[in-house]
Design a protein around this nucleic acid. Structure first.
Lengths: 339, 339
DNA sequence: CTGTTAGCGCCTTCAG
DNA sequence: CTGAAGGCGCTAACAG
């Protein structure tokens, strides 16, 4: 099995290439950036030396000398294990990669302190920009911690206390439409399983739910409103709803974990309940109860955020320097098993 | 809404801090690395200047001057959208973050050329190490492209044509055990839906399937062996199996996408088939047919790979410089609905 | 077309 | 305890 090049520990530099090729380091530099002002002969010799030494240009030094940034965006998500955020990362990568920019990703776990630490680290590392799915409800620290030349884009949740570009999901509209459709299907006892109301998406989706009820003249019942933070607690929440004297005939869940938990409870007791939920998931079309899914394109969310960032990183007069923008990605509703 | 610090475009440097604090840049440097040899008074003044300017040390310059690496590992996965790889990334991050190392992630999409390009880019960027879920079946290019001082760890699939640490799943054992259990449940007409045999995991899992059949004296039927590359093709593959004159009474699928596709087909025609599959997925315990899942800890896979890498990055004599190692993460089998 | 000089921002080394 | 000198690897800017 072949082993890898030893190079006596430290990598060769342009000087090594230059002396082997018997030219100046500058000529090597020129060859490597495809500068036209190099004779064919010198170019050949440099390339030969490069190959012989297995030389690779040190991008770090390059970046420093050119006064550029790292060539990477920092991405902070609350939970990479959620496929939604994985797709978000993919969407971002698909856009920034075209500009030779990479993604440095980390997890905040919904902890504002971890988020802040990561932001600081990214700034020190000279990232070109930062994309955040923000935890917490106050992002004012960004004002001090992030210099203006490092653009920020928020995803899924809007910035608070700081100006930043942001890309949101149509949380209100999706929740409204889902609830409206449930009512159209003749359901009026509609339960709600949400995430903590301090999270923007949760409160917007709750607002959409309430507004649709109100528009249809269906009274909101406090006893139908539950919160959950994971699959297990959503399952418990639904069990409580089903145990009410007058249990719901439909339940709207604000995210896929809640919907999954709700389904577990419904399936276990074979309750006569239809499900509606934000975020699609695998097998959502094959459940044993009618299911209505509010879906949206997580890749698109990432792409849009990346674009907003890139526009602020363009050179010269192609750079966008205007006011912060807010994009909203639409949702679509899909019904399964409603016949 | 507060806006962010302007700083006239370019960030302040140590010199700026130094002149404001009326000390030399060296003193600033010392304060910032908590060097003891600084008077309390100078320390105070430096910190005040730092705060006043909103100064942050430039890690890029720091790394260059110290001759260190980027402080990041490059991670190349075949498909980040697969929750398995997202978990892998999480596992890696949880380990390397303790050493102040970040994860730079990219997607190869199973394309060896993209993988190679990413590797080259990571090397140029001076990453500390590279973790790869390798595409293709020949990784000899790494011998030339990656200097020895940049350790490589392969995950899920072993290296070919190059020496590298690697962490594998017990593909053979898991497949063997799943098939064995199906036979114990009285199934003998066991279909197989695999991924392309050129992929290591696919061929190992096929081998496990075959070995278990053989051990039980159950003949392998070629007509029961299908390949698929995504949910839709797995669904079609299963439809073909079910259409055979003597259809299988059980099917072993080599990954969660295949299992999901198989389930779709089985569910659609209400076939009397039990399912076995590698990789867990949401709702695997609530399907309408008995299901047997071969599961393993993707985080652990990531953690192990990260550890192998870190051991080769330790300073001085704590660094591991021995031969390449191979770790195998065990699988567990869970049965649902077998009564 | 080629090489020299100077410097990116920081740190190591060595002299005070 | 402090500072000056020099260099990390590379590249603009300027000479030839």
């Amino acid at each position: 099995m072949p082993r890898r090049r030893a190079v006596d520990g430290s990598a060769p530099t342009m000087r090594d290439v230059a002396s082997l090729a018997e030219v100046s380091p500058m000529t090597v530099s020129r060859v490597l950036q495809d500068h036209p002002n190099v004779s064919a002969e010198n170019r050949r010799r440099v390339l030969a030396a490069v190959k012989q030494l297995g030389y690779r240009r040190n991008d770090l030094a390059r970046v420093l000398s050119q006064g550029r940034r790292l060539g990477a965006v920092g991405l902070i998500v609350t939970n990479l294990a959620n496929p939604f955020y994985a797709r978000l990362a993919l969407g971002i990568e698909s856009v920034v990669t075209r500009d030779g920019i990479r993604v440095m990703v980390t997890n905040s776990d919904e902890d504002p302190d971890r988020e802040r630490a990561a932001v600081g680290d990214f700034v020190s590392r000279q990232v070109d920009g930062i994309i955040i799915v923000p935890a917490g409800s106050n992002h004012e620290y960004l004002v001090d911690d992030v210099p203006e030349r490092t653009p920020i884009a928020m995803v899924a949740r809007p910035p608070t206390g700081v100006e930043a570009d942001c890309v949101l999901v149509d949380d209100f509209g999706g929740a409204y439409e889902a609830t409206r459709r449930l009512i159209l299907h003749g359901r009026t006892r509609i339960g709600f399983v949400g995430n903590p109301p301090s999270v923007y998406t949760g409160s917007e989706r709750f607002r959409g739910y309430c507004a649709a009820l109100e528009a249809a003249g269906v009274p909101l019942r406090d006893s139908y409103v539950k919160r959950a933070r994971d699959i297990a607690s959503a399952e418990r929440a639904l069990a409580e709803l089903l145990a009410l004297p007058e249990p719901p005939d439909a339940v709207f869940c604000t995210n896929n974990r809640n919907t999954l938990g709700a389904y577990r409870a419904v399936h276990r007791v074979s309750a006569e309940v239809v499900l509606a939920g934000f975020d699609d998931f695998e097998l959502s079309d094959m459940l044993s109860v009618p299911t209505l899914i509010v879906d949206y394109d997580a890749d698109e969310l990432g792409r849009r955020a990346a674009q907003l960032l890139l526009e602020r990183l363009q050179p010269g007069d192609r750079r966008y320097t205007g006011p912060m923008r807010r994009a909203v990605v639409p949702t679509t509703v899909v019904e399964h098993g409603f016949g």
